[in-house]
Design a protein around this nucleic acid. Structure first.
Length: 417
RNA sequence: GGAGAAGUCGCAUAGUGGCCUAGUGCGGCGGUUUGCUAAACCGUUGUACGAUUGAAAAGUCGUACCCAGGGUUCGAAUCCCUGCUUCUCCGCCA
């Protein structure tokens, strides 16, 4: 959410942001409603001041009571009108995207820019197989049975596959907590509507969420939601900033509208594991913090010895709430694709405003919104694809990256058990 | 799931329809005293919205906020209804 005062005074910037993000929104309508609101509000407040004056003097004469009755009525009517406009404004405000940073390339997803590449793609003296074939032969992935249990778009890890998943989670959490200074969080996987709105998933993406109708709870699509909401409606002490949190959670996505796309294997599943990085920082530090968060995510791929590239997303491709965003793409030689395994974003004060997270600066009277950032550090399912396909051997076994071996009882290789 | 109790300013508490623009204590901030610390004493103390002054920092005025939302009343922290949260007891349960 943006500040209504900012919108009032910077209509051109707001309109440009909406256009660059490929969205539609009637800014004039909002500005008009805002003007109406302020006019009615002033009228109501003048009358209320009069009412308060009378009420302070104790029991009024019958005459005064007779006069106050219609005044109260009038105040009630004005309040109702203001309330109606407030609601309209509130709904509209949720549909205005964050404003992209100057450094973000303007344009459609084609305008995404590669920032850097790391590592080398593996060379095979045989035709590399994809993770589905490899995983099923080794009996570490079982798609027929996950379909039987849950349906299309789920996965069943078995044996060393399940252990690999667990090893990845522990490896990433250890890296971020021990070396990158993040505090480990284990949040609820079900959250309420308020939390979902605060981080910007609602109201726009309700169709993409799994919802428990009887309780109006949602399965989290990312740990970003519960972890950012830790500090919702709080005023943080300046001295404790920046705050770094990392959390493992399962993530649940309906992927409505993407049927037929990447339906095979682990590419796009309804449930996957992810280790998330979340930061709460002072406003002037947020773009530097984005760079360091990105490096923290990259470090995971480096230690796993997976080649990747860093993409700076264009205005047309960054999310609604983000001002700037980098994607990490790991190479998968089996399916011959760059896999998006991480997305690191600066939300500036956009989420903080929705979630009402502020901090007090020393020597300053006014509270300020903090800036929030998050990124995957990193997403499991696609990383598993990359590991299986990059480290496959001619005999169909998979070499386990050294960084993971301590988490897998020292095993060096996944072979058929 | 059932029964009961409670939710007031950062914290603790007072407040049973107009004197509440919410008292008091603690804490915080500023000051006096003091070699330093402590104590004592004095002052100060939230948030949002709107109007207005200002380059800004900030100030002034008004309105709202006593868990949330409705209702009764000329007037609600106070009375009524609904919801949420917390606590206690019972039942069930990994």
């Amino acid at each position: 959410m943006l500040d209504i005062k900012f919108i009032r005074e910077n209509q051109d910037k707001v309109k440009k942001a909406i256009k660059d993000k490929g969205l539609k929104f009637d800014v004039e309508k909002l500005i008009g409603l805002d003007a109406d609101r302020r006019k009615l509000l002033m009228e109501a407040e003048v009358l209320k001041a009069e009412k308060n004056k009378v009420s302070k003097d104790g029991k009024p004469s019958p005459e005064v009571i007779g006069k106050m009755k219609p005044l109260s009525q009038k105040i009630g009517d004005l309040d109702k009108k203001v309330e109606e406009i407030d609601q309209k404004i509130g709904i509209l405000m949720l549909d205005i995207p964050n404003i992209p940073h100057n450094s973000v390339p303007v344009g459609s997803p084609d305008a995404n820019k590669m920032v850097r590449e790391w590592g080398e793609r593996p060379k095979f003296d045989f035709k590399p197989k994809n993770h589905i074939e490899l995983g099923e032969k080794l009996d570490i992935l079982d798609f027929p049975r996950s379909s039987k249990i849950s349906g299309a778009g789920f996965c069943l890890f078995k044996g060393l596959g399940a252990k690999l998943e667990r090893a990845l989670i522990n490896f990433m959490l250890d890296l971020h907590t021990k070396e990158h200074g993040y505090k480990e969080i284990f949040p609820p996987f079900l959250v309420n509507r308020v939390s979902m709105t605060a981080t910007g998933q609602l109201p726009r993406l309700e169709q993409d969420m799994y919802r428990l109708k009887d309780d109006d709870l949602f399965l989290i699509p990312t740990a970003e939601v519960p972890v950012t909401n830790i500090h919702r409606d709080e005023v943080l002490d300046e001295a404790i900033l920046p705050i770094y949190y990392t959390a493992y959670t399962a993530c649940f996505r309906r992927e409505a509208g993407s049927y037929g796309k990447d339906t095979k294997g682990l590419m796009r599943v309804h449930q996957f594991d992810k280790v998330e990085l979340v930061k709460f920082v002072k406003p002037d530090a947020s773009y530097d913090e984005l760079e360091s968060l990105l490096k923290n995510a990259e470090e995971v791929l480096k230690r796993l010895k997976l080649s990747y590239r860093v993409m700076a997303l264009s205005t047309g491709d960054i999310s609604f709430s983000a001002s700037k965003c980098y994607d990490l793409e790991a190479w998968a030689p089996g399916i011959e694709k760059n896999l998006e395994v991480s997305s690191c974003s600066n939300f500036t004060d956009f989420q903080a405003r929705r979630a009402n997270i502020k901090y007090r600066q020393k020597g300053k009277k006014k509270l300020d919104y903090i800036h929030t950032l998050n990124g995957s550090g990193i997403a499991m399912a696609r990383t598993v694809i990359a590991i299986i396909e990059n480290f496959q051997q001619k005999d169909g076994s998979i070499l386990i990256p050294e960084a993971l071996r301590p988490y897998m009882d020292g095993s060096e290789r996944i072979t058929k058990e």
